[in-house]
Measured scan of single mutants.
Amino acid sequence: MATDAALRRLLRLHRTEIAVAVDSAFPLLHALADHDVVPEDKFQETLHLKEKEGCPQAFHALLSWLLTQDSTAILDFWRVLFKDYNLERYGRLQPILDSFPKDVDLSQPRKGRKPPAVPKALVPPPRLPTKRKASEEARAAAPAALTPRGTASPGSQLKAKPPKKPESSAEQQRLPLGNGIQTMSASVQRAVAMSSGDVPGARGAVEGILIQQVFESGGSKKCIQVGGEFYTPSKFEDSGSGKNKARSSSGPKPLVRAKGAQGAAPGGGEARLGQQGSVPAPLALPSDPQLHQKNEDECAVCRDGGELICCDGCPRAFHLACLSPPLREIPSGTWRCSSCLQATVQEVQPRAEEPRPQEPPVETPLPPGLRSAGEEVRGPPGEPLAGMDTTLVYKHLPAPPSAAPLPGLDSSALHPLLCVGPEGQQNLAPGARCGVCGDGTDVLRCTHCAAAFHWRCHFPAGTSRPGTGLRCRSCSGDVTPAPVEGVLAPSPARLAPGPAKDDTASHEPALH
C-alpha cells in the first residue's frame, strides 16, 4: 500500500513536468492505449483535445483523470512512461527518471493478473537440437547421386540401376557391380574402391570401400567397409609401409569409374585409389579445392560414357583410347591431361624469361682521411668538412668512354686558381681547403699541381719545410723540376691526363 501511495503522490508531483515534456501524442498516448491504461473513449478524447488546445494541455488533463483511477493503472502508467522508446522521444523525461526514488519498484506484477504457477513436473524439458533432418536429407541425396545420367557406350558392359529405396527402410541396399565389389548404403556420403591386398588381414578377392557413415545421432565417422563389417581407420595404420605414394595433400579420389555407378572395369580391371599401398590413418579432407572437384561422367573428346580416367587438374575425364597418344593402361600417381600440362608450361616460361635485376654498384670503404676530388669540390665554400675520421664509401662506377685530351690552356685561363699578391707571391683563392683534413686555415699551394695542403698533414714525420718551391706529398717525388717562383700557373702540358701512381689516385688537379 505504501508503494501505491508513493506512486500516486509522484504522479501528482510530476504531472506538469510530464505534460510539458510530452510534445507529441505518439508514441506515449498510443502505448498507453495498447497496454489498456487508457480506454478507447479517453484516447479519442485526448486526441481531440490535443487538436484543440495543444499537446501539453491534453496530457495534463489525461494525467488528472489518471489520478482518479486505481493503483494498478497508475503503476502501469509509470512502466509505459519509462520505456526506452519514450525516453528517446521525450528527452525531458530523463530528469524525472533520475529523480525517481530508488525504493519504488516498478517491476512488480499487476494485482489480480498474476499467472498461475505451473508445477515443475509438468514443464517439459527442453529438446536438444538434433541433426536428424540433415541425416534424412543426406539419405535422400545419396540415391540421386547414384542414378545414371545416360546410357553407357556399346563397348562398356557395366550397366546398373540402383533400385529405389524407401527412406523408412534401415537395411542396406547393395548393387552387384562384379568382381566382388559392393556399394555402400544410402547413408554413405562418398565411396572409393580399395584393393584388398592393401588391407592387412583381408582374405580372398574381397575389396573394401572407404566410406563416411552418417549415424542417426547426427555425428559422422569415417571407416572402411569390408564385406558386411565396418573398420575404423586406426586398424589399417601401417607405419612400416615404404610404398606409400601419396598425392599432394591428398584424400582418396576415384580416378576410374563407370558411368552411372562406381566400380571396377569389366574384364577384371581393378579400380585404383589416388594413392597406392596401405590406407593412410588420417582421412581428413584435403585443403586443395581441386581434389574436391567432381569430374564429368562423359569423355571430353567423344562425349560418351564408359570407363573413364579423370584428370587431377580439371573436371574433365577421358577414354584411354581417346587420348593423344592413347594409353594402354592407367598410369600410377597423379595424372593430368594435356591442357593442364600446357597451362603449367605456359606459367613457367614467362618466369624464366623475366630479366634479372641489375646488381647495385659495389661499394668499397675508403680509409679515414681520404676523399675523392669530387667530394672536395662539392663541399660548401668557406666551411670545414665535419666528421673527417668517419669511413667514407667510394662507389665503383662504370668507366666513362675515352675522351680526347684536354686542349692547351693559356696562363690567363688559370687566373682564378691563384691570386698574385703585391710581391708576386701566389695566394690561395677563397674557399681553398686541405685535401686531407678539410680545413682551409693557413693552407699552402703546391707549386707543381696548384693543390691546397697543410705541410703537417702531408709530411707528418716532421720534415723541414723548404723556403721556396713548396710541393705536396703527391708531387714531391716527381722528377720534373719545380717552376720558378712567381709564375702564375704550371705549363698547360702538365694538365694533360697521364698515368698516375697508386698513392696519388685520389689527388687529381682540382679547380677552386
Score class of each variant (00 low, 15 high):
residue 165 K to G: 04
residue 64 S to N: 03
residue 132 R to M: 03
residue 109 P to T: 15
residue 100 F to G: 01
residue 65 W to Q: 00
residue 13 L to S: 01
residue 47 L to V: 03
residue 19 A to I: 00
residue 122 L to G: 14
residue 99 S to R: 03
residue 172 Q to P: 05
residue 177 L to T: 03
residue 98 D to L: 06
residue 185 S to N: 08
residue 97 L to W: 00
residue 233 P to K: 03
residue 227 G to F: 01
residue 21 A to V: 03
residue 116 P to M: 11
residue 44 Q to P: 01
residue 216 E to L: 14
residue 196 S to Y: 07
residue 22 V to C: 01
residue 253 K to V: 08
residue 130 T to I: 11
residue 29 L to V: 03
residue 69 Q to F: 01
residue 244 N to C: 04
residue 16 T to H: 00
residue 186 A to C: 13
residue 167 E to Q: 08
residue 119 P to R: 04
residue 158 L to S: 06
residue 271 A to V: 11
residue 202 A to L: 09
residue 272 R to Q: 09
residue 209 I to M: 07
residue 196 S to P: 07
residue 158 L to K: 02
residue 83 K to F: 02
residue 173 Q to E: 06
residue 117 A to V: 03
residue 19 A to Y: 00
residue 110 R to A: 14
residue 221 K to D: 06
residue 63 L to A: 02
residue 217 S to D: 15
residue 35 H to W: 05
residue 200 P to N: 12
residue 73 A to V: 11
residue 79 R to G: 03
residue 265 A to P: 07
residue 257 R to W: 06
residue 43 F to I: 01
residue 124 P to C: 12
residue 267 G to E: 15
residue 59 F to C: 00
residue 39 P to G: 00
residue 24 S to Q: 01
residue 94 Q to N: 01
residue 52 K to P: 01
residue 192 V to G: 07
residue 228 G to S: 05
residue 2 A to S: 13
residue 29 L to R: 04
residue 69 Q to E: 02
residue 9 R to M: 05
residue 14 H to S: 01
residue 46 T to G: 00
residue 50 K to M: 04
residue 239 S to T: 12
residue 176 P to V: 15
residue 195 S to P: 08
residue 261 A to S: 05
residue 130 T to W: 14
residue 66 L to P: 03
residue 155 G to F: 15
residue 3 T to G: 01
residue 218 G to D: 08
residue 258 A to S: 06
residue 162 P to Q: 15
residue 87 L to V: 08
residue 264 A to P: 09
residue 28 L to E: 00
residue 85 Y to S: 02
residue 232 T to S: 12
residue 205 A to Q: 05
residue 126 P to D: 07
residue 111 K to F: 06
residue 78 W to K: 02
residue 260 G to V: 14
residue 151 T to N: 09
residue 246 A to P: 11
residue 167 E to A: 08
residue 27 P to I: 03
residue 140 A to Q: 08
residue 155 G to V: 05
residue 120 K to T: 15
residue 77 F to R: 01
residue 230 F to M: 07
residue 154 P to H: 03
residue 199 V to P: 06
residue 174 R to C: 03
residue 37 V to G: 02
residue 34 D to Q: 01
residue 253 K to L: 06
residue 229 E to A: 01
residue 149 R to D: 12
residue 69 Q to D: 03
residue 20 V to W: 05
residue 270 E to N: 10
residue 186 A to G: 05
residue 116 P to Y: 12
residue 264 A to R: 11
residue 108 Q to S: 05
residue 217 S to G: 11
residue 198 D to W: 00
residue 72 T to S: 06
residue 91 G to T: 04
residue 15 R to Y: 00
residue 257 R to T: 08
residue 53 E to K: 15
residue 151 T to V: 15
residue 57 Q to R: 06
residue 102 K to I: 15
residue 145 A to M: 04
residue 158 L to N: 13
residue 127 R to H: 03
residue 270 E to K: 06
residue 94 Q to D: 03
residue 243 K to F: 07
residue 43 F to S: 02
residue 31 A to D: 08
residue 24 S to G: 03
residue 156 S to K: 03
residue 168 S to C: 10
residue 6 A to L: 15
residue 119 P to T: 15
residue 246 A to V: 12
residue 161 K to E: 04
residue 111 K to A: 15
residue 24 S to K: 15
residue 246 A to W: 15
residue 73 A to N: 00
residue 261 A to T: 11
residue 77 F to H: 05
residue 67 L to G: 01
residue 168 S to P: 01
residue 199 V to A: 06
residue 110 R to S: 10
residue 29 L to W: 03
residue 3 T to W: 15
residue 145 A to I: 07
residue 94 Q to T: 04
residue 56 P to I: 07
residue 102 K to T: 13
residue 36 D to G: 07
residue 170 A to M: 02
residue 123 V to K: 13
residue 70 D to T: 04
residue 16 T to C: 03
residue 181 I to M: 09
residue 232 T to H: 06
residue 258 A to G: 09
residue 138 A to I: 11
residue 89 R to S: 15
residue 95 P to K: 03
residue 203 R to W: 03
residue 178 G to M: 15
residue 39 P to F: 14
residue 191 A to Q: 04
residue 256 V to W: 14
residue 246 A to R: 04
residue 267 G to I: 12
residue 77 F to K: 03
residue 33 A to K: 00
residue 158 L to W: 13
residue 97 L to N: 01
residue 117 A to F: 10
residue 187 S to C: 09
residue 58 A to Y: 01
